[in-house]
Amino acid sequence: MSTLWLWASDACLLIGSFLLLTGALGFLRFPDFYARIHACGVTETLATGFVLLGLLLRSDDAMPQVKLVLILLFVLFSSPTASHALAKAAWNAGVRPRDNSGKRRVSLPHTDP
C-alpha cells in the first residue's frame, strides 16, 4: 500500500465528511420541505460515494472491496429513490413549496394535476 493511495483515500474521506456536514446544515437551515430533501438527498448520494471510495482505496483485500462496490451500487440505487419517494409522498399529502421566509407559498409553473 503506497502512501499515495493512502493520501487519496484520506482526501476522499474528508470530502465525503465535508459533504455530509453541508447536507446536515442544509437540512437544518433550509426553509421548506423540498429544499431540505434536496439538501440531504443530493449530498448524501455523493458523500456516501466518496466515503465508500475512500474506504475502497484503503482496503487491500479482494472480498471487502467487492462488498464495498456492491454497497456503493446499492446506495446509488436506493438513496435517490428514497428522496424521490419522500418528495412524492409529501406532494400527495398536500405539502407545497414555500418561499425563503418559509411563510408564503410559491406560485408554480405547473398547477396540480
Binding site: 446499492f74 440505487f77 436506493s78 429513490t81 424521490h84 419517494a85 412524492k88 400527495n92 394535476p113
Partner: peptide, 15 residues
C-alpha cells in the same frame, strides 16, 4: 386512488 409509483416500482424490481 394514487398515481402508480413508477420510479419506485422499477427500482424495487431491480432490488
Amino acid at each position: 386512488h394514487l398515481a402508480p409509483h413508477t420510479i419506485l416500482q422499477v427500482v424495487s424490481k431491480l432490488l
